[in-house]
Simulated scan of single mutants.
Amino acid sequence: MLLKSPWSPRLAGVEGTLCDRLVASLSEDILSGTLSGGDRLPAHRELAWSLGIGTGSVTKAYAVLERQGLIRGIKGRGTFVSVGSARRDALIDLSTNTLPLMLTDKLLSRTLSAISRRIDSDHVNLHPPAVGHDEHRRLLARWLGRQCVEACPEQLILTGSGQQALWLAFDILCGGRGIIVTERIGYSGALALARHRGHPLCAIGMDVEGMCPEDLDRELGDHDSNGRRRLVYVTPTVQNPTTRTMGAARRQAIVDICRRHATPIVEDGVYTLGNDPSLPPLVHLWPEGVFHVSSLSKSLSNGLRLGVLLAPPQGIAQARSALEAIPMTSSPVD
């Protein structure tokens, strides 16, 4: 017979989803010592029934708490508190790359209400252009300008996410099975995308500022690529996952090397918002050779799935052709 859980189920009175509120209440009771190490937690269905919520919310909350090291699930036995004593310091979860909550219910309600009063129904009712609506591109160009990324609206391509913008840039520059030269430790999403599309990866050494110019110069000077096109994929600001940021001299060195070897760059700029203006984006240093990728999900909220690709003029025609085969246009509602 299983022992009854000593926890009195409750949802914390904080803003957020039901999952967030359940995580907050359990975290508080575990860290305060109300629950002790080894205490059993209610079963998923039992807890969902007592709180009047879906079992999916309970499952998600338990998964979050397990990643945080606060609970553990034992197959066939149940879920238990895994910390032995109360902690005084707040827990900081570094297991996921998630922004803090910035779009509260009230802010989101006011924003959507304001948008509804001046929305253009044609943006929803009519088939959107392959590269995105002109008005949306104009607004995104202005937003990029605040990040020191000077962009003409005509050079912007809007996609459903930053990941899709990377997909499009890789395909434009490398086609099928081109070589992607990138940091030795890189963004898992981009690496998975490259492997999915059949692009061989070439790893470049890193130091405290990220990609090493000497290693890059040596690799691009090697002409043994079997006729495959190459591109350099790099994140100069808050590189994922190392968080390293290139100084101004390093950025110029990377651009000079790629320009000398006539190798285009895909710059991942999703973390550029709030960057030091003395650190120019690579696209500013070489506008005709850099494809710049940005995204709202890493700047405003994870749920805003809108990607932006700033392409040189010669890349726009290729992008239109690619988007005719694989539409990636962003949602008009976003």
Results as ranks from 00 to 15, higher is better:
231 L>N: 05
226 N>F: 12
229 R>I: 06
256 D>W: 04
253 A>S: 08
227 G>C: 10
255 V>K: 07
229 R>M: 08
220 L>I: 14
249 A>E: 09
252 Q>W: 02
224 D>K: 10
220 L>E: 13
221 G>F: 05
239 Q>R: 05
253 A>K: 07
230 R>C: 15
235 T>N: 12
254 I>V: 14
255 V>G: 06
233 Y>D: 11
232 V>H: 13
246 M>T: 05
221 G>D: 10
253 A>Q: 13
226 N>L: 15
224 D>W: 11
251 R>C: 03
219 E>V: 15
254 I>L: 15
225 S>Q: 10
249 A>N: 03
229 R>N: 12
231 L>R: 10
243 T>A: 07
250 R>H: 03
246 M>D: 03
219 E>A: 11
242 T>V: 05
223 H>L: 15
234 V>K: 12
230 R>T: 14
240 N>T: 02
236 P>K: 09
242 T>W: 00
237 T>N: 07
245 T>N: 02
247 G>P: 01
241 P>A: 04
238 V>D: 03
222 D>V: 07
240 N>K: 04
254 I>R: 14
237 T>Q: 07
236 P>R: 07
222 D>P: 04
222 D>L: 07
219 E>D: 07
252 Q>N: 05
240 N>C: 09
230 R>L: 07
235 T>K: 10
233 Y>M: 11
252 Q>E: 11
246 M>V: 05
242 T>K: 00
223 H>G: 04
232 V>K: 13
254 I>N: 14
252 Q>T: 09
237 T>W: 08
221 G>I: 10
240 N>S: 04
252 Q>Y: 02
224 D>N: 15
247 G>F: 02
255 V>Q: 09
227 G>T: 08
244 R>S: 02
242 T>R: 01
250 R>W: 01
219 E>C: 13
226 N>D: 15
255 V>C: 05
255 V>P: 08
241 P>D: 09
223 H>I: 08
229 R>D: 11
256 D>F: 01
220 L>W: 12
242 T>F: 00
226 N>C: 14
232 V>P: 13
232 V>M: 14
231 L>S: 14
241 P>I: 08
242 T>A: 00
251 R>P: 03
245 T>S: 03
220 L>G: 11
243 T>E: 06
255 V>T: 08
248 A>M: 04
237 T>L: 05
247 G>I: 00
228 R>Q: 12
248 A>G: 00
221 G>E: 07
243 T>P: 01
231 L>F: 09
249 A>Y: 02
250 R>Y: 02
227 G>P: 07
219 E>W: 06
237 T>E: 08
256 D>Q: 12
229 R>F: 04
231 L>H: 06
235 T>Y: 03
248 A>Y: 03
238 V>S: 02
237 T>P: 00
241 P>W: 06
222 D>Y: 08
227 G>N: 11
238 V>E: 11
235 T>H: 12
228 R>Y: 03
253 A>I: 00
245 T>Y: 01
223 H>M: 12
222 D>C: 10
256 D>N: 09
223 H>N: 13
256 D>H: 06
241 P>M: 08
252 Q>V: 01
244 R>I: 00
247 G>M: 02
237 T>S: 04
244 R>W: 04
227 G>M: 09
249 A>H: 02
232 V>G: 12
225 S>W: 09
242 T>D: 00
246 M>G: 05
246 M>E: 04
222 D>T: 10
221 G>T: 10
239 Q>G: 03
254 I>M: 13
254 I>Q: 13
243 T>D: 09
